[in-house]
Design a binder for these strands. Structure first.
Lengths: 343, 343
DNA sequence: ATGAAAGCGCTAACAA
DNA sequence: TTGTTAGCGCTTTCAT
């Protein structure tokens, strides 16, 4: 391996000069700088991150912890973060907790001491557990945490838009298939539903319990959704929606004719399945970019600068993308006695 | 931060003893070991990876470089690797080259000097570029590289199965929508097609050029596929198949009635779209597990043990999962003049 | 079985 | 502007 020492030897300067020429070019004579750069290039020198990190107390690496990389949602967020990080010459350490709170904490602990700061996506662990992050800069996505900055999709608006859409289609009994119990988004969405209920007195909301945020979770939920008597359903995410639609179709119902389904996140899946999913859209890679920007700004913050205020999460606007999985309520509620069709 | 020194102070031993107790327990008296472990636990000590890596020349971290994390294929492979790595107490550094050969080389260089070894998935860069890995253990997935071990899905068998399937359905003119030019899998598949052509004299294969391994790539390919006059098409991966199906349907053709489509990789997408895709299945997380096992074995290999032989890639068996996107050829070739329908 | 000491490759005072 | 020096936290000889 070629070290800073080799470069120094080749150029005929001290290792300090090499270090400076490479990391703080202004502090070195232009001519020296050029010779160092040339020698480094010629020898194929690459700084040893471990060593500089150890010494400087800074690794130029940030961590990203997501519950499930194979979920297109997190993959998209990850790309946004990677994009920004690369632009800043910072490496990203991506890890996946497999939706397991215990693994999450374990990984977080490791991540924290090995990076300069962490983006924590949709955490499932409890607040106390997260004490492990210590004083390191932390940005949480789709969550709020005292002392951490936060980026989130505007779920409140997303739910409001969705409810209005369904309501205007004539739906009065709407089910919600919830996500992981510890999910902050889930909590937010439920409270948005409560708000909607206040706003629209004739609206009935059937909240269904926690389901896995996966296709399988959607499968599982199908039974209770049908049994609920709802004519429309809002799901925790697109995967759940997809699973739900498939199972419900097997049960002999048509989507959207017999049941309108709305997904969440508007991942690329939404436009791929049949019927294409109506889904709440938030710019996912934008979430990643914003989160990365917050974190990077915090890292570059001079020692004496004030800590970022973090007054509530940075909200990424939500839009409702209407596709084929939602339709006007027909027949059953056409007349005042229509609902009698369901026992 | 709590260091090894704090633990040593608390127990009343030297830092050497603490280090040994934690990394090489047999070399320390059981009683001492227990006291060290207790103190470390109590103080919340975590070893500084950068420091131990720097000193020991080993980071207990492996790297994973994939072209595109949002591709379910690589996400699945990544999970397999993460699973094995975690079991061995090794961290995984995941990075994404965004299908850009230049970024790939750059990231690979960084990964190599910051990890003990790398799993390189479906590389797009040229062989010379990859000299950057130096002597570090390397496992390539879906590729072959001198001096590196390799894991790959048995594409040759996959293509053979697919061709046989389509042939037995009556298809005689089959198109192949290729993937990235630098893709080894693509090359293998083309050679498997050549073999099939030899085996089945009446088979015509239309090889279409390089397309992006994405839904968009499938969209783009639709035109040439239709123009090719093929009655069945094999695509580079499921994403391409999905894009192709959608565009082809917009052009007024029905799948599989007018065109049979086969995907590759059998990602979860295949079973989600309509019609469900017939696709070549390989156990993706098994690829990850095997790759991780090879790499970890290499890392743990004693200095004097022989290098792994690496006689050809470890092949993961391929199966054809037949779903709804392939069907018997109807009408047009029913009679000897049937093909006249296509100008 | 344990400890003292050297140093991995680098950066950041401090001197010159 | 450049060099000297002192470590960052840890592992590993080499003594004891």
């Amino acid at each position: 391996v070629v070290t800073i020492r080799d470069v120094a030897g080749a150029v005929g300067v001290s290792i300090t000069t090499v270090s400076r020429a490479l990391t703080d070019p202004d502090k070195v004579a232009p001519e020296t700088r050029a010779r160092v750069a040339a020698a480094a290039e010629a020898l194929g020198y690459t700084a040893n991150r471990a060593a500089s990190g150890l010494r400087a107390g800074r690794t130029n690496t940030i961590g990203l912890l997501v519950p499930d990389l194979s979920n297109p949602y997190f993959a998209a967020v990850a790309m946004g973060i990677a994009e920004r990080a690369r632009a800043h010459g910072v490496a990203v350490f991506v890890t996946d907790s497999q939706e397991d709170p215990q693994v999450e904490v374990e990984l977080l602990r490791g991540l924290v001491q090995q990076t300069d700061g962490v983006v924590l996506c949709s955490p499932r662990a409890t607040v106390e557990d997260r004490a492990v992050i210590g004083a390191k800069p932390l940005v949480v996505v789709n969550h709020e945490l005292p002392g951490a900055q936060s980026v989130a999709v505007d779920d409140l608006a997303g739910v409001a838009l969705t409810v209005d859409h369904l309501y205007s289609l004539g739906h009065r009994r709407i089910a919600y298939v919830g996500g992981p119990a510890r999910s902050w988004s889930d909590t937010r969405r439920r409270s948005a539903l409560a708000t909607a209920r206040t706003r629209l007195p004739r609206l009935e909301v059937v909240e269904l319990g926690a389901h896995a945020p996966t296709v399988d979770g959607g499968n599982t939920a199908a039974g209770v959704v049908v049994a609920s008597g709802a004519t429309a359903v809002i799901t925790f995410n697109d995967l759940v929606a997809v699973g739900l639609v498939r199972r419900v179709q097997r049960l002999g119902l048509r989507v959207p004719h017999d049941l309108s389904v709305v997904g969440f996140d508007d991942t690329f899946l939404a436009d791929l399945v049949t019927p294409a999913l109506t889904s709440v859209h938030g710019d996912l890679s934008e979430i990643g970019r914003r989160a990365a920007d917050l974190l990077l700004a915090d890292l570059r913050r001079p020692r004496d600068a004030p800590e970022p205020t973090g007054r509530g999460p940075v909200l990424i606007p939500a839009q409702l993308v209407v596709r084929e999985s939602t339709a006007p309520l027909l027949l059953r509620t056409a007349g005042p006695t229509g609902s009698g069709l369901r026992s």
